[in-house]
Design a protein around this nucleic acid. Structure first.
Lengths: 203, 203
DNA sequence: ACGAGAGGTCAACACTTGTTGGCCTACACG
DNA sequence: CGTGTAGGCCAACAAGTGTTGACCTCTCGT
């Protein structure tokens, strides 16, 4: 009968436990790493649990044990934290450049973000997740810089369009022309754009 | 044995025939319409042939007969023609606004484009298709306007980033803040941006 | 020492997918 | 009239999916 009361580390998904590192933590992180790679490379549907498990070197059923379901795995593997900088101490005129620079650094080789964008473009649930990231992380930062509070959503949306468009063409669609641009060129071109979207009194 | 030499209208995919309208043309377009809706709404993987066939009111096997495979159906349903305007007669300083305006009109309610972007973000083949659209359709237009021919790819890439970012946030991710912007506001904000990317002598 | 449980494998279930072949029906044309 | 064939339906196949339960093995606390 056996009744498996064990449900070993599912709890760990939601609450970080500082408790003694269990032996399973290695496997757990192996699964998460493999999952991020697969989701980033193939999108949600094409990234199969079997493939992820094989990459992690374990049995597919382990994935279920640890994360409950494929959706659970995705939720655990991709929890987006843009770690946007505090723009308060930054001089007003440099907010745009600072934001673009941060985004470029953040996206470089970051598979979680690529996965989020891929899935966001594919599924309804993914899109909602991205809307939440926008609301919870970009909007507050924009609020710090924008002159008129009422215009914050519009200005933030414009910034999101520019930044996500950059990420899309460069990191997801992998357009050669977008990849050929150096970090400096991108900063020089799009920095002022974002700056204008954030702080220009009118278009 | 029956040997089905019929393969009724597969030819019609590649060569448009002005020949007498066959009875099957209604079904064919019904399939294509349903396919565009499904691909746009669900992406490539989640849009099943069965669902498309049901929408079109016919049997799934008919889809195969007409288009050979799911990939063939997608290729037939989504052949992207941005129909970009000739920017030669447009005054230099209005090229940006003209391009943005054209894009907004084009995307409005256009399911082929939404499908292309969704699939482009998901699959490798879709991404290549978008890269080709960029190369074959946007680059030539940029060449008309850009001062230095050598900078054309970079400038076009910047425009693509801004325009696709707009489409992504507004039509695919459906961010409320991006949807709240009116056509006029978008023109006023992003028009000058695209203009700058195209024609400004330096960042 | 020894049992409980964490960590893991294996094989299967139930279902969905793209795809195929056989068969039916209505209509155009000799 | 009859017949070939375009147009369509039905049932099934083979492969792949997420998911589940039975079973094994090693380790650690008592």
């Amino acid at each position: 009968m056996l009744a498996y009361t064990c449900w070993p580390t599912l709890v760990g998904v939601t609450e970080k436990r500082p408790s003694p590192p269990r032996r399973s933590d290695a496997t757990r992180t192996a699964i998460l790493t493999a999952a991020r790679e697969r989701f980033a490379a193939d999108g949600y549907d094409r990234a199969t649990i079997r493939a992820i498990a094989k990459d992690a070197g374990i049995d597919p059923s382990m994935v279920m044990r640890y994360f409950g379901s494929k959706e659970g795995l995705f939720a655990a593997a991709v929890d987006v934290d843009l770690r946007l900088p505090d723009l308060a101490p930054v001089p007003r005129e440099e907010a745009g450049r600072a934001l673009v620079g941060h985004f470029l650094d953040l996206w470089e080789g970051n598979e979680q973000l690529r996965a989020m964008l891929r899935v966001g473009a594919t599924s309804q649930a993914g899109a909602e997740r991205m809307r939440n990231v926008f609301r919870d992380q970009l909007l507050p930062v924009a609020r710090q810089v924008c002159p008129d509070p009422e215009q914050v959503p519009a200005r933030a949306a414009l910034c999101a369009a520019q930044l996500l468009g950059l990420a899309l063409t460069r990191f997801v669609l992998q357009m050669p022309a977008a990849q050929a641009l150096t970090r400096e060129e991108l900063l020089a071109w799009t920095g002022p754009t974002v700056q204008r979207y954030l702080t220009a009194p009118n278009p």
